[in-house]
Simulated scan of single mutants.
Amino acid sequence: MKIVILDTSCGNFYSLKTTIKKIGFNSEITNKKDVILNADKIFLPGVGSANSIIKKLKNDNLIKLIQNCKKDILGICLGMQILGKYSEENNGISTLGILDYFSQLMNNKHIPVPHMGWNKVNNIKSSPLFNNINKNSYFYFSHSYKVNINDYTVATTNYDNIFSSVIQKKNFFGVQFHPERSGINGIQLIKNFLKI
């Protein structure tokens, strides 16, 4: 199986690569179009700024390739957020526009932001991502922006307010948490994605 981790210059590439290796597969971190087009599975990781990741994808001419992707692709954290139409960051920035939602800054009036640490993920629709994972399992989060509940939400998490922690539409999947830092549940989720 050919597994690609998109080189967005902002992500936990090596811990993701190590987790995939633990499952028994090799992966390649790349921004080369021909390699990405030949992949069986694609990971879109992201940490930090939506502006930086979109700029990098534009510079690498990967926007249209991702938008038209027919292979299974998993957006992780910021990678999930940019599958939507825009982010509130920097007074609003257009993102990939694949799914009809946007990401907004979490409200820090009653809680610390960023949301960091372990939290429950509550599946509200069935998804192959959750095979052999118990309902209300814990995963590791680290983010300041969130995606509200929408048509593609398959799991939610509560941190002062309930937000989308997993989304899915056809071959596009997204998780707000970091499966590569989420112990056995994260390993199982990555394994499930590779089996789809």
Rank of each mutant, 00 (worst) to 15 (best):
I190E: 03
L129Q: 10
N136W: 09
N91P: 00
I73E: 07
K2F: 00
S144N: 07
V175P: 00
V47I: 06
D34S: 15
R181L: 10
F130S: 03
I66M: 08
D7F: 10
K22L: 02
I53F: 04
P114S: 11
N68Q: 14
Q168E: 12
Q168W: 09
N123D: 00
N61D: 14
S182C: 08
P45A: 13
K71N: 09
G75A: 14
G174W: 04
C10P: 01
K146W: 05
F177H: 02
N38G: 14
S94W: 09
N61R: 15
I187V: 13
I63R: 13
S165E: 07
F102K: 10
F163I: 05
G174Y: 07
I29D: 00
T157D: 03
Y14F: 15
K17H: 12
L16G: 08
K191Y: 08
T18C: 06
W118T: 04
I73A: 08
I149F: 07
I42L: 12
V4N: 04
G24Q: 11
L194Y: 11
N26F: 08
P45L: 12
S182A: 06
N31S: 10
D160K: 10
V147P: 02
L96E: 05
G186E: 03
L65K: 14
Q104C: 06
G174A: 06
L189H: 12
Q81P: 02
F25G: 01
Y152E: 05
N26L: 11
D34Q: 15
G183E: 04
I167V: 09
S94C: 03
I187Y: 13
I187S: 12
E28F: 04
K125R: 13
K33D: 04
F25W: 06
E89V: 02
V35I: 07
N132W: 12
G174N: 10
K55C: 10
I3P: 05
H178R: 14
K146P: 00
I76P: 00
I184Y: 15
P179F: 13
H178N: 06
G84E: 07
I36G: 11
K56E: 02
S15C: 07
E89Y: 04
E88F: 09
I82R: 04
N148P: 03
N107P: 00
N132A: 14
K33T: 11
K71G: 02
H143A: 06
A39F: 11
Q188R: 15
N185D: 02
N136R: 10
D7W: 13
K125F: 10
T18N: 13
D160M: 04
D100Q: 15
L44G: 08
P179H: 14
G11Y: 06
V147I: 11
T153Q: 11
D151K: 15
K146R: 15
Q188M: 13
C10N: 14
S165L: 03
D34W: 15
T95F: 00
S9R: 14
Q81H: 08
Q104A: 03
F43I: 15
F141L: 01
